[in-house]
């Protein structure tokens, strides 16, 4: 690990544009040990509080420093947003969830193995050096939204659920606060893969807000190489309501398939107003994966995502095979 200066924030304005923020530390310390992250200044935001989950406008506001464990265990989250609890519980290990925070989880970095090896070429870690993943081992990489500069995926589970639930992210900067839909928070790599999300230097996530719960079926399905403590190969988050035998509302989000949690409004549009059936679900899944583009080593993700979506829609609507 490279040397750095450490300070404890006592108020948000202590954070300068030159600081790298540490919250739970479970991702950044790992990357600092690998010398993938080499910050000169670290600011610890643990003293800032932001650990409350409060009710607001019929929804919930989750403070940025709420630990993943506390969010998943919260009675209101379990009752009204089971999708969020399920997604958090599907990620990492209990020890990591006890430290990991809501804001930090959104800011976690890709697990692309070339990004994590300083000796490999990586435009995300060292802009302009190239991408060894393009022609390397890329079974975990993107099938949507990749560029010739970067094919890495956003690896998290929580943000995928938050996207399907229509959450927003509150960001605190030196000039005030702004709120952005979670779908706009993470970005695609395009020509700037080093930038994971739209946080500017010195900015801080202060909270995540969930709109009022919709009820209905909420399902998070994570497909991975082993059944616990592994990142997703693909994941599907779904919030579905049915009225009069037809799909009234369908919110879907997909994880580990792009540089950001992925959404496709056309797929949701194809489902809304229709009677649930396997034929309908297959059409919707075909619409989704029809736009996918495999890398050299991850073509398996396309039928995997197709089957995962059909299975989730069937479960959410009690549609038998």
């Amino acid at each position: 690990m490279r040397p750095f200066e450490y300070r404890r924030a006592t108020k948000p304005s202590d954070i300068s544009a030159a600081d790298r923020i540490i919250a739970g530390g479970t991702n950044i310390l790992d990357l600092m040990k690998l010398e993938v992250e080499v910050p000169a200044q670290i600011i610890d935001i643990n003293p800032l509080g932001m650990t409350e989950i409060s009710e607001i406008d019929g929804g919930l506001r989750i403070g940025a420093m709420v630990r993943n464990t506390d969010c998943a265990a919260d009675a209101r989250v379990r009752r009204d947003y089971p999708l969020l609890a399920r997604a958090i519980l599907a990620g990492a290990s209990p020890q990591l969830r006890n430290r990991a925070t809501t804001g930090g989880n959104l800011c976690q970095r890709t697990r692309c193995s070339y990004f994590m090896q300083p000796e490999a070429r990586c435009n995300k870690r060292d802009p302009g050096t190239g991408c060894d993943a393009l022609h390397g081992v890329n079974r975990s990489h993107a099938i949507f939204g990749a560029s010739e500069n970067c094919i890495a995926t956003y690896p998290g589970d929580m943000a995928v659920a938050l996207l399907a639930l229509g959450a927003s992210v509150e960001i605190l900067g030196r000039t005030g606060t702004r709120s952005v839909p979670i779908g706009d928070f993470h970005r695609l790599p395009e020509h700037q893969p080093a930038k994971d999300n739209l946080l500017e230097p010195g900015e801080l996530i202060s909270s995540v807000t969930l709109p009022p719960a919709m009820g209905g079926a909420q399902i998070y399905r994570k497909v991975r190489d082993r059944s616990s403590f592994a990142f997703a190969l693909v994941s599907v988050a779904a919030a579905i309501t049915i009225a009069d035998g037809r799909i009234r509302h369908a919110a879907l989000a997909f994880g580990s398939v792009a540089h950001k949690p992925w959404q496709d409004p056309a797929v949701e549009t194809a489902l809304v107003g229709q009677e649930p059936s396997l034929k309908l679900f297959a059409q919707a899944a075909d619409l989704l994966v029809g736009k996918a583009k495999a890398q050299s080593g991850n073509a398996f993700k396309i039928p995997l995502l197709r089957r995962a979506l059909i299975a989730v829609l069937s479960e959410a609507t009690n549609t038998e095979a």
Binding site: G25, L29, D30, T69, P94, Q95, L96, N98, R99
Partner: peptide, 8 residues
């Protein structure tokens, strides 16, 4: 709370 002491 149980945590990984290597990552703090």
């Amino acid at each position: 709370r149980r945590i990984n002491s290597c990552l703090t």
